[in-house]
Design a binder for these strands. Structure first.
Length: 459
RNA sequence: GUGGUCGUAGCUCAGUUGGUUAGAGCGAUAGAUUGUGGAUCUAUAGGUCGUGGGUUCAAGCCCCAUCUUCCACCCCA
């Protein structure tokens, strides 16, 4: 029989037990933080109707969607005219909607918007939800970038209050403090960016300007200028933009400069005011992590309209590990206008990579089983199974070696699984109603009763 | 989607200008030790050299394609 070489799709990964323990540590910290701030869990399907996803993430996003081929004979439904074009590359896009009607979710925000609209009559607003699930993107994998990865989203929808933004800042601080990662929380506001575009006389070029500005710390002022030219921004506008890009100094000074710039931009002033409110509160709350106003922070997703947030680890070279913002009308496209929301997403896989690199996982995460009962044979089984049941009832993670293997082999098993204790109950011990409890770290062994063993093994 | 890069035993890696039967360490298995793991010693097993073509008397090594890994761009968690 010929066997095939096992493999998994590009950009996906298996998680071994040692990794899962660590991943679960992250999810636990995140989940507990979300819950303590009063958010409720939801889940949505891995796949959505393609019509729900298409057009929500820009042209780039559409390309990165994983599409699911219709089941059955998916070529059946094709209009006659097109049936001859099955292989024609130029028509693939056109064909797609006939042969694929579903796609894997690209993020958790758009499915959430769909969820809110669909369940609007059952929900209590403002609705605070969290959602921890995988998402898929047909991107080229590289460092910190996978085709399947987990996002941990918290959003509150149906409230305009800036207190929600403040709360998200607190959640970020709580989560990363809990994980032991030092981070910088960067804040900006889309209205400020719109104000800048207005003030330099290029209000219609907002997206182009923000995409270019976003790269400032990465490629430098000169190349950003080049890119602005390429994107069709006039020299006059670029000249006006230069001093804003290089704006440094204290937050207060940045605000003052921008205020002056925004004399004729109501949008810009509104954005500044929002930022100010949020930042003042965050300052008063004395977070453990630093936050800063960064007007080069743009973020690609087109649906943001107010506050934008991005979090980076301070001690590791990794893209953003958390990001989000406010979107005034995400549900409008699904038929529920005027519903403002704000939310953030933690990238669990990147957080894992950062914590791994910085050795931030607690040592104590490893051992799962606390005690192994050695299997001596059929005669001892009855006694051992009862013993095992007793241990488990007392909440002590325990197992019996299932096969009647050599003691040496069973001890090795315990050793390799990092099980700290082993119980040996052979003929002699059973006769006396006792057992031998061995500490695998020190090598010490003592004889005691089952009751005593449970006491010793309890934390 | 564009450009580059990596792939040899379970793992980490050697492998000369193309030249006999592809090696090491670790790990695995068995034994030294029939109720005791980690240390030591001995022995054993384990390879379509990512895959498919091509060049050559001869390919792990050269060429082409493809898959995968990692990296940069685009974009992003």
């Amino acid at each position: 029989m010929s066997s095939q070489k096992p493999s998994i799709p590009k950009g996906t990964r298996d998680f071994a037990p040692a990794e899962m323990v660590r991943r679960n540590f992250i999810f636990d910290v995140v989940r507990k933080s979300f819950q303590v701030f009063g958010y409720q869990p939801i889940e949505t399907p891995a796949m959505e109707n393609l019509s729900t996803l298409m057009g929500k993430y820009g042209d780039e996003g559409d390309k990165l969607l994983f599409k699911i081929l219709n089941s059955g004979n998916y070529l059946d439904g094709l209009p006659d005219k097109e049936s001859g074009l099955r292989d024609a590359d130029s028509r693939i896009q056109h064909l797609t909607k006939h042969i694929a009607e579903k796609g894997l979710r690209y993020d958790l925000t758009v499915p959430f918007a769909r969820f809110v609209v669909q369940h609007q009559h059952e929900l209590v607003f403002p609705f605070k939800r969290y959602q921890i699930q995988p998402v898929w993107r047909a991107d080229r994998p590289q460092k910190g970038r996978y085709r399947e990865f987990f996002q941990c989203d918290v959003d509150v929808i149906g409230s305009n209050s800036l207190l929600n933004e403040v709360e998200l800042g607190q959640i970020i601080d709580t989560v990363f403090t809990g994980l032991g990662i030092n981070v910088l929380i960067r804040l900006n506001n889309r209205k400020v960016l719109a104000g800048i575009a207005e003030a330099i006389g290029a209000p219609d070029k907002l997206t182009d300007i923000t995409v270019a500005m976003d790269k400032l710390d990465k490629i430098g002022l000169d190349k950003v200028t080049d890119e602005l030219v390429e994107r069709g921004i006039s020299y006059e506008s670029i000249e006006k933009l230069q001093p804003i890009l290089t704006l440094e100094g204290k937050i207060k000074e940045k605000f003052e400069t921008l205020e002056a710039l925004f004399i004729h931009s109501e949008t810009g002033r509104k954005g500044l005011e929002e930022l100010q409110v949020v930042m003042r509160h965050l300052k008063d709350l004395e977070l453990r992590n630093k936050f800063d106003f960064d007007l080069t922070l743009a973020r690609g997703l087109s649906y943001y309209t107010g506050t934008i947030i991005e979090v980076k680890a301070l001690d590791a070279a990794m893209g953003s590990i958390c990001g989000g913002g406010r979107y005034d009308d995400l549900t409008g496209i699904f038929g529920l206008p005027g519903m403002s929301g704000v939310g953030i997403s933690f990238g669990a896989d990147r957080i894992y990579d950062v914590m791994n690199e910085l050795n931030l996982f607690p040592e104590t995460l490893q051992a799962a089983t606390r005690v192994l009962i050695v299997n001596f044979g059929t005669e001892e089984e009855k006694y051992c199974l009862k013993l095992l049941a007793g241990l488990r009832q007392a909440g002590i993670p325990s197992e019996i070696y299932p096969d009647q293997a050599k003691i040496k082999k069973q001890m090795e098993y315990a050793n390799r699984k990092n099980i700290p204790f082993v119980i040996l109950a052979g003929k002699d011990e059973i006769e006396r109603g006792e057992l031998a409890l061995k500490d695998m770290r020190s090598g010490e062994q003592k004889t005691c009763t089952p009751g005593e063993a449970i006491k010793l093994l309890s934390w």
